[in-house]
Write a protein that binds this DNA or RNA. Structure first.
Lengths: 181, 181
DNA sequence: ATGTTTCCCGAGGCACCCTCAGTTTAGCGA
DNA sequence: TCGCTAAACTGAGGGTGCCTCGGGAAACAT
């Protein structure tokens, strides 16, 4: 794979900047034409680099996801119960950077073809691992499954898009019901 | 307000039938043109009766909401704790008849101009009432607010659109964390 | 300087939304 | 039964957004 042309690299950068601004302001459903325009590029160029909205989101989230996964790995050293809780909160907070991201990630978990699938799978694996640790330590009620945790996480992420404070309270209550009595 | 013409009444009926089918199959975001076509009517006729998608949804939900509110009133006679839990489950289940309805209702609660606002406000009032009763009976933890319950309800409703079983489990856990220890 | 390859451009086809000027028709009164 | 009129219906068309693809431009190697 030879190096990309300089103009291509420049344009990708400008597109990502414009897309980040647009997604922050209007969610992941923001129209793509204005993004291209703002990047000083034609719409075809955008599609040339990113075949679809998910691919664009994936590129935007790359570093952010790396940081999140690193955080998850670090948490695997902390006390199991609090670590699991912290992880859930971290993911929920992350998924709220862009409105609509929670839905996108939830869909990406099921859809093998999604550009976000790998990242979602990694999040899921990390959740499994942290939950298993918590189970081993007796920090969570035995009936809590990995799906339960994932469901709570996406639900909280979705809620966070509307009200961060309410999402935190939802997590407070639900975690109280999941952690060992 | 004089009685509507017979053809208008007929068409409204056919439109509602077609819309119900389409919303069940494709969610509240289903294209409206096919609905009109399926009802044997031009697109303009649909808009003549329902100025927007929300108005159509409102009409579809009318009886269903009446039944839900009646259920809520009846629950106000039952033991407070279980009544509150049953109410939350009932609303969550209701909001899952059509994909996307949870979002629509959540938006309708905030948006005064929404055709669904009144219904949402009634649901909210009923929630307040059932929660107040539960508080009075000491059946819920004191820090649980009405917003908390509403948040949980919409989150569960949203989850239900993806997996009914997971939504039920989410409610199990969250309610355990909200009800008195 | 030239050739090749990569990249960019943007008009245009598609889907859906919603409106409104013109046409049809139900229902009423003579 | 026959107009008449208000109510209802129609569907072309303008707006927005998605995405493609053939032709043109620009980078880079030689």
């Amino acid at each position: 794979m030879p190096a990309r042309r300089a103009d291509a690299r420049r344009n990708v950068g400008k597109l990502l900047d414009a897309a980040d601004a647009a997604f922050r302001d209007h969610g992941t459903g923001a129209p793509l034409e204005p993004i291209a325009r703002r990047a000083g590029v034609a719409i075809g160029t955008l599609y040339g680099h990113f075949p679809n909205r998910r691919a664009l989101a994936r590129a935007l989230l790359r570093e952010r996801h790396d940081a999140l996964f690193a955080r998850g790995d670090r948490l695997a050293e902390d006390p199991p119960g609090p670590a699991l809780a912290a992880w859930i909160r971290a993911v929920a907070e992350h998924a709220a950077v862009y409105g609509g991201l929670a839905e996108m990630l939830a869909a990406g978990l099921d859809d093998e073809a999604s550009e976000l699938h790998d990242d979602c799978a990694r999040m899921s694996a990390l959740t499994d691992r942290l939950l298993a640790r918590a189970h081993a330590a007796g920090a969570v009620r035995p009936e809590v499954t990995s799906s339960d945790v994932l469901t709570l996480t996406t639900a909280a992420a979705w809620t966070r898009a509307q009200s961060a404070a309410q999402a935190d309270r939802l997590l407070d209550h639900a975690l109280r019901g999941m952690l060992a009595p």
